[in-house]
Design a protein around this nucleic acid. Sequence first.
DNA 1: ACCTGAACACCGTTCAAGT
DNA 2: ACCTGAACACCGTTCAAGT
Lengths: 230, 230
Amino acid sequence: MQKSGQRAGRRRDGLSASVIVGAAIEILDADGEEALTFRALAARLATGSGAIYHYVANKDELLDAAAAELVGRIAGPSPAPAAADESVLALMLGVFDMINAHPWLGAQLSRKPWQTAILHVFESVGQRLESFAIPQESRFDVASALVNHMLGAAGQSAAGSRIAHGVGRSAFLKDVARDWTSRASPDEYPFVHAIAAQLAHHDDRQQFTAGVNLILAGVAALPQTGADRS
Amino acid sequence: MQKSGQRAGRRRDGLSASVIVGAAIEILDADGEEALTFRALAARLATGSGAIYHYVANKDELLDAAAAELVGRIAGPSPAPAAADESVLALMLGVFDMINAHPWLGAQLSRKPWQTAILHVFESVGQRLESFAIPQESRFDVASALVNHMLGAAGQSAAGSRIAHGVGRSAFLKDVARDWTSRASPDEYPFVHAIAAQLAHHDDRQQFTAGVNLILAGVAALPQTGADRS
DNA sequence: ACCTGAACACCGTTCAAGT
DNA sequence: ACCTGAACACCGTTCAAGT
């Protein structure tokens, strides 16, 4: 609710990379990705815009650090030794939920798939894949498919909340549905019409889960694989 | 090879939306997404930058149209009545290849997942899914998983060629691998280290195919589904 | 009706000048 | 060494003025 530039009381008490990244996350969360400018950031930190460059090389690196900070909070080492399926799904949903809580994160992750944040995700996914009996060469492929699924959903969520800001999610999806059905005739685009009807009242999270389960079911069907499903 | 602004001979012979979109695609293909500015576009079309706004609402719409134009060329109605699996895979690879041929396309698709281009993809995927015996409620989920996979790969490819411009793909991946292994210790990040070793000489296209097959195998394992695999 | 291109309101980034 | 903030080189977009 609060807009930019409150709390201008700070001084040269201690500018640092982590303070800058923290402030950046606050701006991103409060007002969205377009609100993060070096001028706004400098104002919030009560310093000059040039000062930021002493700690961060450029805006790309700043966003990279902000994303890694958030993802690092959930993509840590495997927690409870649950069943492999549930463990992977829990991780995927953890990232999914975090993206939904911080819409700018989805855009950032899908824009730069080799950033630090993705490294964490890959590692976490990979470790949880250990308990599956996946042939060594396939392991990378499976992790990649899961990460792709996540990045795809991330971009979707980011784009959605970017536009739906204030309109409300279901109203936005209704708009998309209307746009699609009006742009495409039912004869030529039967599938899109069928989908459009479901769009407004479908559950993103559930659909994301279905996708993960589809991939995991495919893994179970892999040759040489007798995964230890619970 | 050729930079901006050749062929400045045109005049008011006929500015139109399709001419503008065509010129935009030429610039994007030749010099990348950052080269597409209204000034550069106006120069190439030998007109004022404001004139473009008579046919295109803004840059977003311009990119939307450019992406739809390209995707429309391959995502048409189902071609040969091949086996369902092969048909879906062929479509997915068609989009994948087009993205690789036009790097800016990947970025554009993953940035705006509700644009016209994605509508075409959804429809094509959906139609090819007809021959599978997928329960009605699951059909949307399956299409969504496939599209997510594609969008994830699209972003990856776009980011890669954005940076690798000139460096060469394998050199770039070697850089990523070095960056990842140096940033992460082998004890804490064993999976990333294992992956990094494969990164430089892995086949993107093959990995993408593996992901599609994983999803399709998951579909075959779906309850109530006895897909007619060939 | 369509085109022109200067002008406006921004950006990220740099860098001389300060402390 | 660190900070400041004006200045630079761009953007997308608008709009009075032309044809």
